[in-house]
Design a protein around this nucleic acid. Structure first.
Length: 157
DNA sequence: GCCAACGTTGGC
DNA sequence: GCCAACGTTGGC
């Protein structure tokens, strides 16, 4: 038996689709549309209510961590995969055997400034984050040290 | 908009 | 089970 260890995550969103400001307005949202097995497994097997999330803006100017969120509901089936009108529709996922899951997250704070990918790359204490060398993984584990450092950078301008 | 990296699919 | 073709992500 192992205690739940990893309490820190980074989750990517294109701000044109859903930004930290959208989350601030909504307060809470379901994280639909993850269609990558590794990311799914992390959400399904590892994420717990209360875990802290770095909210990352991808495909943005600038790209980087924009704020904080918190896991508010553990993994459950991603219903958008059953909706043929959805961009996330997946005909291989059935209601009896859902292939994809989502979690819910709630807004915590928007940073004073974006902590950019460029800064993260050049900061040696952060350069081993998956963000830097596994750039396509949309849900990533983050260590406490990395998390705290990025929060401090985001708050201190 | 381009394109490199990389994940997924499907034929064999 | 391999691997070529294809599709997607995401930085720039």
């Amino acid at each position: 038996m192992m205690a739940h260890m990893s309490k820190f995550w980074l989750m990517k969103s294109e701000p044109g689709v859903y930004s930290i400001e959208d989350l601030k307005k909504d307060g809470n949202t379901h994280w639909e549309g993850v269609r990558n097995y590794q990311a799914r497994n992390l959400m399904r097997d590892e994420m717990k209510v209360g875990d802290a999330v770095l909210f990352y803006h991808s495909n943005a100017t600038p790209t980087g961590v924009a704020g904080l969120a918190r896991v508010s509901r553990e993994a459950y089936p991603d219903f958008t995969c059953w909706d043929s009108q959805s961009r996330y529709f997946d005909p291989k996922s059935t209601e009896s055997e859902p292939r994809w899951v989502m979690v819910d997250i709630e807004f915590v704070e928007a940073f004073d400034r974006i902590v950019t990918l460029e800064e993260i790359r050049t900061e040696s204490a952060l350069s081993s984050m998956p963000l830097v060398n596994r750039s396509r993984l949309s849900v990533q584990p983050v260590t406490r040290k990395e998390f705290e450092m990025i929060v401090q950078m985001g708050r201190n301008g």
